[in-house]
């Protein structure tokens, strides 16, 4: 199973196994990562699963697609929107993301 490294708002890194096909949001929620809400359950309604993708991984993950709902909704997030910002419910784990590093922002609401 691929692993995902979540760095919580306190700076603590959590290595979590996330089954192929699941989203980064689901992996974090199941593990109880502090600072991750994912309140709407992956439906692009709540913007509370915001993450920053680590620079070293950003090329592989990529930005939100231009003109997509995710892209528009990123303007609504509570913490600062950075070029590496994504809504983690929209990133699904494939083998190529094994080891990916993401930071959970200080606030979601």
């Amino acid at each position: 199973m691929p692993t995902v490294n979540y760095i919580d708002p306190a700076g603590i890194q959590h290595e979590v196994e996330v089954p192929l096909g699941q989203s980064l949001m689901e992996g974090a929620v199941r593990d109880g990562i502090v600072g991750m809400l994912g309140e709407c359950g992956g439906n692009l309604s709540c913007v509370t699963c915001h993450v920053y993708i680590d620079d070293a991984w950003f090329d592989r993950v990529g930005p939100a697609l231009e003109g997509s709902l995710e892209e528009e909704l990123l303007d609504n997030v509570s913490a600062e929107r950075l070029p590496s910002s994504r809504l983690s419910c929209q990133i699904h784990i494939g083998a190529e993301l094994d080891g990916v590093v993401v930071r959970v922002p200080p606030r979601q609401t």
């Binding site: 109880g32 502090v34 309140e39 709407c40 359950g41 439906n43 309604s45 709540c46 609401t109």
Partner: peptide, 23 residues
Amino acid sequence: RSPNRHIAFGTGIHQCLGAPLAR
């Protein structure tokens, strides 16, 4: 309490639009 994954604002596409304000 932590973690505290309550569902007071619902979930899914209709999850409360006003949740940040209510909070």
